[in-house]
Simulated assay, not measured.
Amino acid sequence: MKPLLITDCDEVLLHMVRHFGTWLGEEHAIAFDMAGGDFATSMTRADGTVLDRAEMWSYLDGFFPGQMARQTLVPHAREALAALATQADIVVLTNLQDHCRTHRIDQLAEHGIVHRVECNQGGKGPPVARLLAEYDPSVAVFVDDLAVHHQSVADTAPQVYRLHMVSEPDLAIHVPPAPAAHARIDDWVEAQAWIEARFATGRPAQA
Rank of each mutant, 00 (worst) to 15 (best):
L4N: 02
I6K: 03
C9Y: 07
C9F: 03
D10W: 06
V12G: 04
V12Q: 06
H15S: 12
M16H: 13
V17F: 12
V17A: 15
H19P: 11
H19E: 14
H19V: 10
G21W: 10
T22A: 15
W23T: 02
W23F: 07
L24K: 11
L24S: 12
E26R: 15
H28N: 11
I30T: 09
F32W: 07
M34S: 10
F39W: 15
A40D: 11
T41V: 14
S42P: 10
S42N: 14
M43I: 08
M43S: 15
T44G: 12
T44I: 14
R45S: 06
D47C: 13
D47L: 05
D47K: 06
G48S: 15
T49V: 13
T49S: 15
T49F: 13
R53K: 14
S58N: 12
Y59A: 07
Y59I: 08
F63M: 03
F63S: 00
F64R: 09
Q67W: 07
M68V: 05
A69V: 10
R70D: 07
R70C: 02
H76S: 06
R78Q: 04
R78I: 01
L81R: 04
L81F: 05
L84D: 01
Q87I: 01
A88E: 01
D89Y: 00
V91D: 00
V91Q: 00
N95H: 11
N95S: 15
N95G: 14
R101M: 09
R101Y: 06
H103A: 15
D106P: 08
L108M: 07
A109E: 08
H111S: 06
G112K: 01
I113S: 05
H115V: 09
R116P: 04
V117H: 00
E118P: 08
C119R: 05
N120W: 08
G122K: 03
G123Q: 06
G125K: 11
G125S: 12
L131S: 07
A133Q: 12
A140T: 03
F142V: 09
F142Q: 13
V143T: 05
A147N: 08
A147Y: 10
V148D: 08
V153T: 00
D155K: 09
Y161V: 02
Y161C: 00
R162W: 02
E168Y: 04
P169I: 02
I173F: 10
P176Y: 01
P176W: 01
A178T: 12
A181I: 05
A193M: 06
A193T: 11
I195G: 00
E196Q: 01
A197D: 05
A197M: 03
R198C: 01
G202H: 00
G202S: 04
P204T: 08
A205G: 00
A207K: 14
A207W: 09
